[in-house]
Amino acid sequence: MDENYDVVVVGGGPAGLAGALCLARARRSVLVVDAGAPRNDPAEHVHNYLGRDGDAPGALLADGRAEIAGYGADVVDGTVVSARAGGEDGRGARFVLTLEDGRSVRARRVLITTGLTDELPDVPGLAQRWGRDVIHCPYCHGWEWRDEPLAVLGTGPTAVQQAQLFRQWSHDITLVQHTAPDPDDDERAQLAALGIECVAGEVSGVEVAGDRITGLRLVSGDLVPCRAVVVVPRFTVRSDLIDSLALDTAQEEEKGHAVGSYVPSAPTGGTDVPGVYVAGNVTDLHAQVLAAAAAGLKTGTAVNTDLLAEDLDRARTGHGGT
């Protein structure tokens, strides 16, 4: 690992690796720092990624690492604990990033692709089944659970919509209200028209037998049988590095209900801190793997264009280019 880079990419998921690939192919010096905890690690397969549908998440990332290394990018397993803007050195590096092992590196630009954290409803047993038979995205998991009995755990005003959406994959859908507001008359009519049962009552836990979900146990003691549970997590941006750079964050809402936090960005991935870019779930809560990779590529080209403008300015003022 060198001490100075054109770009340090923080986060080695699809967005980060795609951005690094673009920049390394553009002959930029690139370092990727990755903590090795991808958001989709609990899932067995990646879906809706053209040409790689069904691949294991780890295989996709391993191949990505090998590809960027082939173009000269460096990859370090670790965590960036802080970053700050410092005075430019002779190469124009303006940021100092400190890793958890105490090492520091400098960068002309920073691309943050640290993704987000899925905060699950506080129901005993959910977290242990997350990514297996506790799911949230029908486009990621609906096909695998087609025609199975599914229970939608209601925790907000989008529960009815979630139940309606999963109805496309299974005829056996039960909406368990839990802490969600009562459906209004129109919503109840919609659920009835689709044959979706609505069950009142809070859930006390997930029932499991033989390493598979068998149902949701209500506080009343009743059991709602199911083979998988659909939840709506709260999507929370990973904030330590973002806080150290004083990046703004915003809340995204659906029907007046906060669904998560993100870093606002321009279409190019630029943020309100000059020289700091974001891509993937850190700025787009709903981006699936392919969309995150595409965003990383797009932002990578924007970063290179930004660096090119700086190179030209430095060349004109006699400070030299890259």
Results as ranks from 00 to 15, higher is better:
19 G>A: 04
299 T>R: 02
18 A>E: 01
79 T>Q: 06
171 H>N: 06
36 G>S: 12
164 Q>F: 09
70 G>M: 02
3 E>I: 14
280 G>W: 05
292 A>L: 04
144 E>M: 06
275 G>Q: 06
204 S>T: 08
122 D>I: 10
232 V>M: 14
67 E>I: 11
190 Q>D: 03
55 D>S: 12
99 L>C: 01
220 S>I: 12
167 R>P: 00
31 L>Y: 07
130 W>I: 08
43 A>V: 09
246 A>T: 14
215 G>E: 12
103 R>C: 10
74 D>R: 10
116 L>K: 03
83 A>V: 09
317 T>N: 08
236 T>D: 14
145 W>S: 01
62 A>S: 11
119 E>C: 10
9 V>D: 02
39 R>G: 04
107 A>E: 10
302 A>K: 07
128 Q>D: 08
173 I>P: 00
70 G>W: 02
143 W>C: 00
308 L>F: 00
202 E>R: 14
255 K>E: 14
272 D>Q: 15
75 V>N: 08
292 A>E: 12
100 E>I: 08
166 F>N: 03
144 E>N: 05
85 A>G: 10
198 C>A: 14
192 A>S: 13
252 E>C: 07
300 G>R: 04
267 P>F: 05
223 L>M: 11
170 S>L: 03
60 L>D: 03
107 A>K: 12
234 R>F: 15
98 T>R: 04
97 L>C: 05
165 L>W: 08
310 E>T: 10
226 C>R: 11
221 G>C: 15
62 A>W: 02
166 F>E: 09
144 E>W: 09
81 V>P: 09
46 V>K: 05
29 S>T: 15
70 G>L: 08
53 D>C: 07
170 S>Q: 03
180 A>Q: 02
213 I>F: 04
270 G>A: 15
87 G>E: 14
189 A>H: 01
236 T>H: 12
170 S>M: 03
257 H>F: 15
308 L>Q: 01
20 A>Q: 07
47 H>C: 01
187 E>H: 00
243 D>Q: 15
321 G>A: 14
21 L>W: 01
90 G>K: 05
25 R>K: 13
130 W>M: 02
196 I>C: 13
